[in-house]
Design a protein around this nucleic acid. Structure first.
Length: 171
DNA sequence: AAGAAGATTCGCT
DNA sequence: GCGAATCTTCTTA
């Protein structure tokens, strides 16, 4: 991931959640609306959602055009330019700066303007495969939802301290 | 037109 | 550990 504004910043995603077609917990479940239309774009487009009156959440669409599905980015490990990440002043701790979906969006300066942007090509935000090797991936139920709460659709890098959530889920 | 819910975080006890 | 902060979107009248 990178952003060109003040400087290029780079982070490695270490925690995600999947929201599938026909998944009652997914915003796309009710069908396409003005708010969730980005989830119905072809895979690789940003879906930015404003939640709890104070936080943005960054997702990528994950299916073919017309099918509603997405992946929520819940935590990322700062690799480069951490000092330019949003919130770096108040939370200089690399472990916390992009840990949790709200903090991740803040760190990457994600706002409504990025909603619908293609993440796979040139642009303000770029999503690509990991540069180096990845640790073992753990699985758990998703956090903070009430519907379909039992499905194991949260994925994280085991043992990575940047991963958010209660420790009992991170084993 | 009004009300409730929501993929969270932070500060205080 | 608990509750407030804060606002957009969708549902219901």
């Amino acid at each position: 991931m990178r952003k060109g504004k003040p400087r290029r910043i780079l982070a490695r995603i270490v925690e995600t959640e999947a929201y599938l077609p026909g998944d009652a917990a997914a915003h796309s479940f009710i069908g396409e609306t003005a708010r969730n239309r980005s989830l119905f774009l072809d895979r690789g487009h940003a879906y930015v959602y404003f939640c709890y009156g104070m936080h943005f959440m960054l997702n990528t669409s994950a299916e073919s055009h017309g099918v509603g599905a997405g992946v929520l980015f819940r935590a990322a490990e700062p690799l480069k330019g951490a000092e330019w990440m949003g919130g770096a002043g108040s939370a200089p701790d690399k472990r916390k700066i992009a840990s949790g979906p709200g903090r991740l969006a803040r760190a990457l300066h994600v706002g409504k303007r990025l909603d619908g942007v293609d993440l796979t090509g040139a642009g303000p935000l770029w999503l690509a495969a990991a540069l180096g090797p990845t640790g073992p991936v753990g699985t758990s139920v998703r956090i903070g939802i009430t519907k379909e709460a039992h499905r194991p659709l949260r994925f994280f890098e085991r043992g990575n301290p940047v991963v958010s959530g209660p420790r009992r889920l991170n084993q």
